[in-house]
Structures are given as C-alpha cells and as structure tokens.
Amino acid sequence: MMENFTPVSALVGGLLIGIGSALLLWTNGRIAGISGILGGLLRFDKSNLGWRAAFVAGLVLAPVLVSEFGPGIAPVKIDANIPMLIVAGLLVGIGTRIGSGCTSGHGVCGIGRLSPRSFIATLLFMATAIVTVFIMRNLPV
C-alpha cells in the first residue's frame, strides 16, 4: 500500500501552484482557472489576449525550466491509447466549459474563495473520476 506516495514533492508542488494562483490574483485580479484562461484565448477576445497567452506560455515553459535548471524530470507514463485520449480530451474540453471550470478554477481557486458552486463541482468531478477509474480497472479487457 501507498508505495507511490510522495508527500514532500506533492506538498511543495501544491504550495507553488497556490503561489502562482495568488500572484495572478494579486497582480491581474484574475482566477487561475486553466480551462477558463484557455477558453478565453480560443475566443480571440483582443482585450484579454495578452495575459492569457502569457500565463499559458508560462505553463508550457515550466517543465523546460525544471529540466534545464532544476532537478530534472522523471519520464511520464500515459497508459491511455490515442483513441482514449481523444475521447478524454473532448470530454474534458466540453465538461470544463459547460461546468465553468476544472481542477484549478474550481478546486484550487474556487474552494480557496469558498464558492459553493466550486465545492459542488469539485466533489462531482472527483467522485466521477474515481468511479470512471474503478470501472476501467474492472472491465474484462
């Protein structure tokens, strides 16, 4: 049990996620909700394009920073195959836009500002994801 538990890196990483969110809030007055930021970017609303593109660029560059100047990154393991990833991506894209947020917007920021909508959304997507993994683990394939 729990042989993969990495409490220190999880806690430190979590603090950094919180600090990134707090900085965006204190400087830009914005929620660090990735699906909302990306969704806004995809609307090409000119007045808000700059900060959104800059935040997303930071997200994409971050692993390069960790691998070049930090401790390096262990390889990731993606078990889902390409068709599964297409279905998953579509569901995540559709669900986060209909539901106004994802793990960051509802989970990290929404609960952080004590929003009842975000509490409910976070409970729902966590529970649904747990059930989904349970079903996939127990499929006779």
């Binding site: 890196s9 950094l16 990134g20 900085l23 965006l24 830009n28 560059l61 971050a62 692993p63």
Partner: peptide, 11 residues
C-alpha cells in the same frame, strides 16, 4: 504566475 504554477504541477 504561469511559470510558478507549472513548476508546481511538474514538481
């Protein structure tokens, strides 16, 4: 902000 957030996700 995005860099710090992303470093957090990575670590």
């Amino acid at each position: 902000s995005g860099l710090i957030f992303g470093v957090g996700l990575t670590i």
